[in-house]
């Protein structure tokens, strides 16, 4: 019994099966989020219409004055957040000799995704009640960030 536990601890990064699932899930969500955010950033900068079929009114949202802060597209902020999230995941699953990643990566992910969830909630409010238009890609990105936040909560209580 004690020997089995020692072997689990000795695994690189010290990740249990559940831990590997959670961090793996986070990496998938981060990459998906980067994809969506990169597309929205591209359409914002290139002044291209967003291909969203008849689902909502992406272009009204994307061209609204809420789509950028001081000239920086909000979608770019989303991209940077997802990229940073992926960075922390890589840090956590990589070699962790000092134990710093095991200690602080969950805190970092929680903090970043909390930030994302709070801002996404604000933007969704703006979409629904100020612009009265919904952007399906923005909703997708908000969902990805919310899922990441839920995983980070699971990691905390694991």
């Amino acid at each position: 019994m004690r020997r089995a536990k020692a072997q689990v601890l000795a695994r690189p990064g010290g990740l249990s099966t559940g831990g590997r699932l959670r961090w793996g899930g986070l990496s998938v969500l981060a990459v998906a989020g980067m994809g969506v955010a990169a597309y929205l950033t591209y359409t914002h900068w290139a002044d291209k219409p967003v291909a969203c079929g008849n689902l909502g009114d992406c272009n009204l949202v994307q061209t609204s004055e809420y789509s950028a802060i001081a000239g920086v597209p909000v979608a770019l902020l989303g991209f940077l957040l997802c990229a940073a999230l992926l960075g922390v995941v890589v840090w956590r699953v990589g070699p962790d000799r000092s134990g710093m990643a095991a200690e602080w990566a969950p805190v970092a992910v929680f903090s970043m995704t909390l930030m994302g969830v709070a801002y996404a909630a604000y933007l969704t409010y703006v979409e629904l009640f100020v612009l009265e238009a919904i952007c399906i890609y923005c909703v997708a990105l908000a969902s990805i960030i919310t899922a990441s936040w839920l995983i980070s909560l699971a990691e905390l209580f694991a």
Partner: peptide, 21 residues
């Protein structure tokens, strides 16, 4: 620190957005 930074960052973004608009 993690929670305060997250909350402050979001509040900052919303305020900055409102001011620049």
């Amino acid at each position: 620190v993690a929670v305060v930074v997250a909350v402050a960052a979001v509040a900052g973004l919303i305020v900055l957005g409102t001011l620049t608009r």
